[in-house]
Design a protein around this nucleic acid. Sequence first.
DNA 1: CGCGGTTTTGAGAATCCTCAAAACCAGTGG
DNA 2: CCACTGGTTTTGAGGATTCTCAAAACCGCG
Lengths: 253, 253
Amino acid sequence: MAGKSSRAAHVRATPCSRCPLRPLPIFRNFEPEELDFVSTFKRGELVVNRGSTVLVEGSPSPYLYTLLAGWAFRYKLMPDGRRQILNYVLPGDLIGLQSSLLGEMEHSVEALSSLVLCVFERGQLKELYSRFPGLAFDVTWLAAREEQMLDENLLSIGRRSAVERAAYLLAFLAIRAKALGLAGPGPVQLPVTQQHVADTLGLSLVHTNRTLRKLAERKRIAWKDSACLVLDVEALQAIAHWSGPSEKPRPLI
Amino acid sequence: MAGKSSRAAHVRATPCSRCPLRPLPIFRNFEPEELDFVSTFKRGELVVNRGSTVLVEGSPSPYLYTLLAGWAFRYKLMPDGRRQILNYVLPGDLIGLQSSLLGEMEHSVEALSSLVLCVFERGQLKELYSRFPGLAFDVTWLAAREEQMLDENLLSIGRRSAVERAAYLLAFLAIRAKALGLAGPGPVQLPVTQQHVADTLGLSLVHTNRTLRKLAERKRIAWKDSACLVLDVEALQAIAHWSGPSEKPRPLI
DNA sequence: CGCGGTTTTGAGAATCCTCAAAACCAGTGG
DNA sequence: CCACTGGTTTTGAGGATTCTCAAAACCGCG
């Protein structure tokens, strides 16, 4: 159920000035001195394999990460093994903030694909707050955005039916992926198994399969190579009674 | 379903230096200059009645609030009226941050009892970040804590059974209330109806009633005057398979 | 070819829902 | 004082949703 905790550490250097993410239109422009500081803030890069656990529940992580490439997910486990996936982590997302602020991680993070992560040192966060209020604001911004996503997810699990829930989740992920340019002109491909979907929706694997099957019959999605192809995002949104997110230019630390 | 939006505004002045909350042991000590700034940051006090809506989904609030006294809850509505309660707001909690950062509220906040709120102006947040990195850090801290509560709530709704869910919620609220000194020596009293519990747990009112009844039969809780008396917090935690929060000294803005 | 991970299908059972109505209770106006 | 009202809690009954157990089918990979 949980992935192996092997962690193929591998450090390269890609200067922030040539960050592949920052040129994307959804990220806000940085002042030169902000960019300089982030560059020094960055301690290196970490590459991990699919299935690896990046952060572990219960342990205090000395690092903060920004995901540069790949897909991951945050989850919690109950003592008897029940798993709940809380949210998905896409490029540009910050992880490990809870540990840096509150002391201990209360959730784990696992890689859905191989990942490239920017590594920051936890201790430097205070310096960031002292010297770059704008960046500090951005960190809070990211935390507030995560909260917003969790709110919608909570509404989904609490009050939407199985089909609505599935439709919401797949539309949500497809839209996030598209905004990052992770999809070509064709349908978005989500690197998740039906087990991941089940653990996100709070449903059993069997019932999730039957629910997804209905969406597939209606040509809203398709399964290929242990991944989900999202064929019609707007139809999914309509099924979920969800009008979509209000995407504004966002910060990238 | 939603409360009346009447808002009995009433402004008094209680200087932060005589804040009734700050002396509590769970709040961290402030530097004198931090306290000074918060005092100037504070624009006044707002008193609202039970049932009033403090913040409305979809509207950009020009204010930030810290709850001084009373109970409230955050919730979202679906177009057809389904309601999901996301979390409860207790004294010392900050509300309206999402709006200040992201532009628009995506949830509403309603008073469970009459409330006293500290009012801050949204625009001053930037000044706080510039001049008091420590306070800025605190704001982020509060956001990360909210996220942590939402994570646990998501696990609850997604993976716990009805009884486990109810037990978790009531233990969670009882512990939060106790930490704030809101309970005397006796059992904690939670000012919620079974409808609130149902909308928090993602269950129907009928099934919630039958579930709570089981807990009442076992003497874990009791209902009195449209409120829940929590008789045995530890037993509830055991039912929920929940070990409780890690309460550390926390900031109060 | 055999293996492990993933998807699919069947069947019966538990959980949870909806509809409906009654009981209870504090507050309100006659 | 009493009837009436609205909000809350309680109970019954049938039905829909979702779960668990079990097994088969499928598929890339060594």
